[in-house]
């Protein structure tokens, strides 16, 4: 899996490509921790862009859950956007779409999240 970080204004956008499974979950968790800790300043919001995420396993869901909880504690808005059908399915079945905000695409997400 490939993880890229972009910042739009102060908002951190994390772009995922590939498969988020047991093998890649731990590395992604560390990267997300760094993003939430903020480089220089803590971001007001973190958007996880899943447009190129092909697969997510339960280990991957766990990382999202841990990050969502950490973000809530730190008062950082945390959301996902641009889910593929396969990933959407997993989030729906596991009930995660109930507790994590999901936007249709990055544009909508960036328009909705707090900017600073």
């Amino acid at each position: 899996m490939n993880v890229r970080l972009e910042t739009v204004g102060k908002v951190a956008v994390v772009i995922l490509e590939g498969r988020l499974d047991f093998a890649t979950a731990e590395g992604f968790q560390k990267q997300l921790e760094l993003v939430l800790a903020g480089i220089g300043s803590v971001p007001p919001a973190v958007v996880i862009d899943c447009a190129a995420l092909q697969y997510i396993s339960s280990a991957g869901l766990r990382v999202l859950l841990v990050a969502a909880k950490a973000a809530q504690r730190a008062r950082i808005a945390f959301c996902l956007c641009s889910l593929t059908a396969a990933v959407r399915d997993v989030l729906d079945v596991s009930g995660f779409s109930r507790i994590v905000t999901v936007y249709a695409d990055r544009g909508v997400a960036l328009a909705q999240v707090p900017q600073g």
């Binding site: 869901l61 079945v93 995660f96 507790i99």
Partner: peptide, 13 residues
Amino acid sequence: GAGGLVLGAMADS
């Protein structure tokens, strides 16, 4: 009836 949250995630589910 699917779509309930997994156990262990949120205490008030």
